[in-house]
Design a protein around this nucleic acid. Structure first.
Lengths: 211, 211, 211, 211
DNA sequence: GATGAATGAGGCTTCATTCAT
DNA sequence: GATGAATGAAGCCTCATTCAT
């Protein structure tokens, strides 16, 4: 595996450099995709010499990995917060919050997210699996605390299905050149999840879940 | 956009050449991924001169596109056959057949499928959308014929959700380094779909859906 | 070991290319030494694209190796011819021919020879040993045919000493910024060799061996 | 020419730093050759910052030059001592001591010696000539004091031949992958030298010169 | 049509060296 | 004096593509 074996920044000056490089990578990746990503370009955009870049990164892949890591961290943080906030609420409410949070997360920087997913296949399957695994654990933990309220019994499998399904559908909608009504899509995903969990969504009689 | 504007093969010898090239591309793509794909390498593996390759293909992207096309064609053919065979059957039976077919399709050549998906993002978002669109139309058409038996009303949206969900979950399971029990996964996906459609799966009382 | 694993030239056009590259390498090496040798420079001097260079050579080292090989071939050829011509002559005469031949060989292209020796240490120790080995075998074979006329008994060791000694002294003289009288040096080397072999050089009473 | 124009160390701490740097250079040179020698690497191995290195050395070449100097100094010291000790002895005894001393000198650190010779060609032809010149002067001086006992008359030329011959043969033997019997080699070199000098080696009737 | 030698833009990376702290 | 982050010239090499044979 291509791990970053270069010097770790110790002074604040070098920390800023590393930060500028990662940010530049994100920008280039977002604008021109992986194909347009060159180490020289990143250095230029970061306003840093190519030598500095190589002092902290092994090359292209290390750069992308750093970006994915950063992106994954914020996604996971969001997920954790959302589920933590859902502790006292009903399952339908939690599902709604979760889907809404995923929508928000994908909306923050859709292009970046797309590139990350694309590249995560490429180099970081290990990485994407880690993220997915963490997400599943969080969801599974939540499900365990509400297992008497839901139908499925294999919570590990269920957690996996939920994470994959919600993520994939949002992602797929984002890719569409004719962006669908995200609200409607969210509602439908919520409906699917709730029915799968065997819960009669109280809100179905009350109006749209995502106004 | 890079469309293939080269001469189309008319003689059988040319057809064989083109075929050898596409097959070689598939092989290289499967073995070494997109990064290891070079036109010279493909020509060599195909046992064809680089000049001949360029007589039939515009370049790298055309090669990949041809492979994706071929792969997509067989996937879509499988889907069509499955749904055609389901004409007279119950919805649960159709869903079961569909999921089973998707599992089979992904199992044929997982590496190739993975690379295709990866690259479809890369070049041919247009292309992937076309495939997805075709699949959705087929599913939507089926749903229309059974709309009185199912809960969701927005069949276009539902078709999209179904295709994305089934595909994503199978795909995700395939990526896992610890491949899960595919049978159990399939059953769970079927259960989710049926509950979403508002159908009480008759087989739930009868035993496993995928023996 | 860094062997040349690239395509071998098959057409006459490519043979000419390879030749031009080796010649250019020789020239650059002679003019600017190993430090001034860059693949781009060689390509430029050869009037060939850098791509063509890499089609036939692995890089810098392969280039140098080819040059050394070529140079070694002519040195060995010269040695063989000289000793073959000495078959019927007396030992003193053979020694004189040999030393004179070595002097000639070193005079052909002293700069190239120097660079070759320099680099042979670097990459091709194996190579230099092969040349030296071949030379020793030739000399040893000659000595065997005249062993009754000479003092030393361990002919293998003697052959090694002779080759090393003659080569080193000529080489050393060539390096000197104040080039010594090559004739006198040659005579002295001849004298040393003959005394070592236990032969009273008949010509010592007759005049200089190398007029 | 790249002469070392930097500050000379005056305090003991500085001396230690300089020493550490030269030692590190020697180590890197010995382990990885000239190609593996980088200023940053040397600084790291020496446990010194790259900035400090440049405070005392002009750059790469200065480093190597310092190492060669150090090495040459010990070689010359050894030679001087040996010849000084030979003042009262017979020529054969002096030759034997000299060859033995050279063998010992080359055995101390063969890798370093090889690299030094290799690099002395590279940068410091001037330098190598100085060492060689010093050695020749020492030998020539010795020969002058014994010129009535030896055959050759051009003592300058003879001294040059002797130094070159002894050094080259030992060096050559060291390079061999199948290291020959150093004792036998030494004896043969001694025999050659003595016969060249026109001395009937008294020890030839007494047994091996190098027990 | 087929061949494969040739091309060269452009990406990747190192490493000697400087200089602000 | 010491430090080490930053620099960027310069070299290495690939690979998509063309074109003369």
């Amino acid at each position: 595996m291509t791990v970053n074996s270069r010097r770790q920044p110790k002074q604040s000056r070098s920390k800023a450099t590393v930060d500028a490089i990662i940010t530049a990578t994100t920008q280039v990746l977002t604008q021109d995709g992986y194909a347009g990503l060159t180490t020289n370009r990143v250095a230029e955009v970061a306003g840093v010499s190519i030598g500095s870049l190589y002092q902290y990164f092994n090359g292209k892949e290390s750069l992308v990995q750093a970006v994915i890591e950063r992106h994954a961290d914020s996604m996971l943080a969001l997920l954790k917060t959302t589920l933590a906030d859902s502790v006292g609420t009903s399952v339908p409410q939690a599902v709604r919050s979760f889907v809404r949070a995923m929508l928000d997360a994908h909306s923050l920087d859709p292009r970046l997210h797309r590139v990350c997913v694309e590249q995560a296949f490429h180099l970081g399957l290990e990485h994407i699996l880690h993220i997915r695994g963490t997400a599943q654990e969080l969801v599974e933990f939540y499900l365990q605390e509400h297992q008497e309220a839901i139908l499925p019994k294999d919570l590990k499998l269920t957690a996996s299905l939920l994470v994959t399904t919600v993520d994939a559908n949002i992602h797929s909608a984002m890719l569409s050149p004719t962006p669908p009504d995200m609200g409607a899509l969210g509602d439908e995903v919520i409906a699917m999840v709730l029915r799968y969990l065997g819960i009669l969504d109280d809100s179905e009689a009350e109006g749209p879940a995502l106004p």
